[in-house]
Write a protein that binds this DNA or RNA. Sequence first.
DNA 1: CTGAAAGCGCTTACAG
DNA 2: CTGAAAGCGCTTACAG
Lengths: 337, 337
Amino acid sequence: MPTIKDVALAAGCSTATVSRALANPEKVTEATRKRVASAIAKVGYSPNLAARNLRRSESRTIVVLLPDIANPFFSEIIAGLEDVAHREGYRVLLGDCEHDTGRAKAYFDLLPTNQADGIILLTAEIPLSLVTQQARGSQIPLVMACEYFDHLALPTVRIDNPLAAARAVEYLSSLGHRRIATITGPMQNPICIDRVKGYQSEMARQQLAVNPGWIVEGDFGFLSGYQQGQLLLALPPEARPSAIFCHSDEMAIGLMKAARDASVRVPEDLSVIGFDNIGLSEYCQPELTTVSQPRDEIGRCAMRLLLDVLRKKQVPHQQVLSTQLIVRASTAQAPKP
Amino acid sequence: MPTIKDVALAAGCSTATVSRALANPEKVTEATRKRVASAIAKVGYSPNLAARNLRRSESRTIVVLLPDIANPFFSEIIAGLEDVAHREGYRVLLGDCEHDTGRAKAYFDLLPTNQADGIILLTAEIPLSLVTQQARGSQIPLVMACEYFDHLALPTVRIDNPLAAARAVEYLSSLGHRRIATITGPMQNPICIDRVKGYQSEMARQQLAVNPGWIVEGDFGFLSGYQQGQLLLALPPEARPSAIFCHSDEMAIGLMKAARDASVRVPEDLSVIGFDNIGLSEYCQPELTTVSQPRDEIGRCAMRLLLDVLRKKQVPHQQVLSTQLIVRASTAQAPKP
DNA sequence: CTGAAAGCGCTTACAG
DNA sequence: CTGAAAGCGCTTACAG
């Protein structure tokens, strides 16, 4: 592999000049710039970034930490992230924490040794100490997306979860539903707590009572929607919900399967709302009413925010993207009592 | 950030000794080993891998190229890959080619400058020249999974696509179906050609005629299954298939939606088989009969294979993992004529 | 505008 | 078993 020395030899100049011609062309005469350019082409040179990074103390690599890469919800966010990164000359190192809080540390350790320049957190399932120490003390470039930490002023890209949940409940209420339940994601996630709060406050605003049994916890996956759905549908008739708001589309689809099994018709007997608007939500039966999140844009925003942090620009501490209730066929007027 | 010098100072030895204590503990006395260890703990040292990599001419980074990260099919493969890599002290750099053949080159360029040690290809949508030059000439460590190139003897992890397709057709035939169609993936993919071959040879073996209109091309996504499904279901009754084998579950689910729209009942009027066994296939309506691929294991195998290549071990040129036909509710006896 | 030289943090023959 | 020294390939003050 040819090095900068070979180029210098071929161009008849020093390695310093080659380096300058590449990094600061304006510091070099037109003529040398051209000689260097053709020398580079001739020897087929491409710079060794490991050496450059060592020298510059940067890596042009961004770590993206996520709870579980096999969860398709993240795929589109990552696609957005990676596209922005690529355009800006950065690379994305994927850190799958597999819901294991210990794994995150290994990735944070890449920062102090310049193996990564910054971190985008798509999960709050990491030791809080990593974030407080690093983000505050050593000013590690860190951006969160989707999730957030409560008492920390990290730059964050997110949606308004309480509002989105309230809108979903408001819509169900407008259809005449009074017994509205919710299947949540894991309640250690602040966003799930937020959605429950939005649910509760809107129920209160609509003067609807909340049966404590109507708030059940899932894990975002199909199976938990199915299982918790079975529980809700097994409630005695006077307590059985006529509408259920789920914190993910997968759980909503699992719930609809539980309804089929129990011969409960959606939407005639039961209205269902999901969250995320994954591709599938248009192809399930019935098509799913859901809260749409701009996943691609969340990824792009987060990466742009982090690059701004790296470039020492002022960045907003909160970037709130808007959601949209997409009404499809899984919701309908509440059944007559 | 403390460097190896700080450790040497604290341990009262040279940097060479510190380095050896870390890399080849057996070359160092018990006593110095201990002094070094406690010095490391004291100063809070962790080695700068950029410097190590520059020196060792390796990066411990594996590039994974895939056509489109937003496609959930790959998520689980990546999860498997990344788990093996992590255990072996390697990192995974994700290269999303976005179906754009130009992007791959940037990732291949990481190899000669030691920014990556090897490549796992999950796509054949890259310029063939990259592979032939690099794999043969410069012996770039390269492993393929899922896809493969026809005339190249690259180490490859894959399934037996013709066999899997033939099994699906055989099963449909055993249910009495005679008019069996197929919705393929993009036909520039060798695996799709293989599946069509398997379909054709099994049709022939069962002495079933193939109407040329029964082989239609999709792109693996929901929408193309829906659209091509509409076409197939619009064929005149005598040519209309009673069973359709799809090259992906998403297309099968799109097809089932087209059937609902056309008031064609699945499985009573139409049997549907998918491919991949994604999580969703158990939760759609009806539950989908499909060919299961061991995605996690494909990822693991591919990474292990690549690490073996890097360690100069002999590796098999083909690793064929087995598939399984999972029979669920989308297939049934052919309707009486 | 250009070059000689130092140095980023590590590893590894080469002596001893 | 240990150390002094060279070198991986680049970048960048410092002179000129």
